[in-house]
Computed example of a mutant assay.
Amino acid sequence: MNFKSLPQLLDYFKEEQTAIEYYEKIRWGGNPTCPHCGKEKPYKTNRGWRCSDSSCDKKFTVKVGTIFQSSKIPFRTWFAAIWLATNHKKGISSVQLSIDLGITQKTAWFVLHRIREMLKEKAPAMLGENNMVEADETYIGGRETNKHFRHRRSRENKLLRNDGKPYKEKKIVLGLIERSGKVVLRHVPNATKENMVSFIEQHVPEGARLNTDEFKGYSGLGKWYNHETINHSLSVYVDGEVHTNTIENFWSVLKRGLYGIYHQVSDKHLERYLDEFAARFNERASTPREKFNKFLRESESYLSYDELTA
């Protein structure tokens, strides 16, 4: 079961029962548990499991309460989708996934969003306990010079286009990254000091070493952190150990993926795409099989199509 490539994974999971038993071992570790009441030691039935508690007595399969719930897609196809989505550095589009797996584009889109639900951080990650942290913000959206005239921001900075429709501003993403460590991302409506400071306080312990650029939203952080800035407006990008090059490098990967693979991401779903890129980056040192098993262990998160498209 030491899968090193997608063909090896597909060869191993030729039978659906093999995949079911593999996932049962990953999820339950030999101790099946009822997802409805939490009672252990259910008993096997012809089509799955049944709770041994008479007050519950519900039937279930290993899919219930996970990203696989209510899905008619075989585990073999699901596993291939997870492998592709988590090993392609810049992601994979729903159109390409539908071609690779022989499913419809609509199904592939839903599968990828359920995978992103699995990749979400289950608890706030803390950075900087033993490592330098870099904080920065970036803007997702096309350049003004590349837009049709009626879609550009006016010189008076009005939020209306020439045809009277609202001007759509770029999406703002905040990022924190440890050098040789993890990254944490958040989509915020405005690059205000309040949004930036609260984001940093949630993920970086007081007293940690923190590097930012000279943006005024980071002013005052020296009260709680060992905060140093680099002045990009003066074309200074490295001053000894002070720089934000690590997070800048990550932004380039993120934007190449969003622009080159997905082309366009709505405000509604941007946070899900950020979860995907962060999870892939944070597990970059793991082998494909290690990533595959880790993400499967974190798949107890159900997302319905109605909830996704509401």
Rank of each mutant, 00 (worst) to 15 (best):
L6V: 05
Q8S: 03
L9R: 04
L9M: 00
K14H: 09
E15H: 05
A19R: 04
Y23G: 08
Y23R: 10
K25N: 15
T33G: 09
P35D: 06
H36P: 09
Y43Q: 01
K44Q: 01
T45Q: 00
W49Q: 02
C51F: 05
D53F: 01
S54G: 01
S55C: 13
V62L: 03
V64A: 01
G65D: 01
I67T: 06
F68S: 00
S70M: 10
S71R: 04
F75L: 13
F75E: 08
T77P: 09
F79V: 15
F79A: 13
A81L: 12
I82Y: 07
W83N: 06
L84W: 03
S93K: 05
S98I: 10
S98C: 00
G102F: 03
G102N: 01
I103R: 14
H113G: 06
L119I: 12
G128T: 09
D136P: 00
I140V: 00
G141T: 08
R143Q: 11
E144M: 12
E144D: 11
N146H: 03
F149N: 15
E156R: 11
K165Y: 14
K171V: 05
G175I: 06
E178R: 00
V184Y: 01
L185I: 01
R186S: 02
V188K: 03
A191F: 01
A191L: 07
K193T: 07
E194D: 13
M196P: 10
E201G: 12
Q202T: 15
A208T: 08
T212N: 14
T212K: 15
T212M: 13
F215S: 12
G222D: 03
G222E: 07
Y225P: 00
N226E: 14
N226A: 12
L234S: 10
Y237F: 15
V238E: 08
D239C: 14
H243P: 08
R256Y: 03
L258V: 12
Y259N: 15
G260E: 09
I261K: 14
Y262V: 06
Q264E: 08
K268E: 04
H269F: 05
L270S: 07
E271Y: 14
E276G: 02
F281R: 07
N282P: 11
E283P: 01
A285I: 14
A285N: 07
T287Q: 06
R297L: 12
Y302Q: 06
A310L: 08
